[in-house]
Amino acid sequence: MRAAPSPGEAVVTAPALRLALSRQEAESTGALLRVVSDASRLQLLSLIHNSRDGEARVADLARALGLRSPTVSYHLRMLGEAGVVSRDPRGRDVWYSIVPERLASIADLLR
């Protein structure tokens, strides 16, 4: 048996360490942020995230944002190339959703 944990958090109110983010991690997060650092892309991601079943089509997104479909398609392609969204062609429609592993990182930006 290991020793009992210290009694409560009060003991360690001022921890004497600061946690650093490694350069490599900071760069990979920065690269992700670069792709989404655009008001339209943030809106698109927010819309997709808040859609039913977390997926949406170009036409839905274009209408909701008042953008032209080619503009929406362009942003989605950029987001797709960066691995942020994935496309799922079903029948005559293509449904876009946020890649689950990425969603954890950007969900805080989309609330």
Partner: peptide, 12 residues
């Protein structure tokens, strides 16, 4: 709220 988890490597 927005960058707290990212600052701790939430992206990786």
């Amino acid at each position: 709220v927005r960058f707290g988890s990212l600052a701790f490597g939430g992206a990786g």
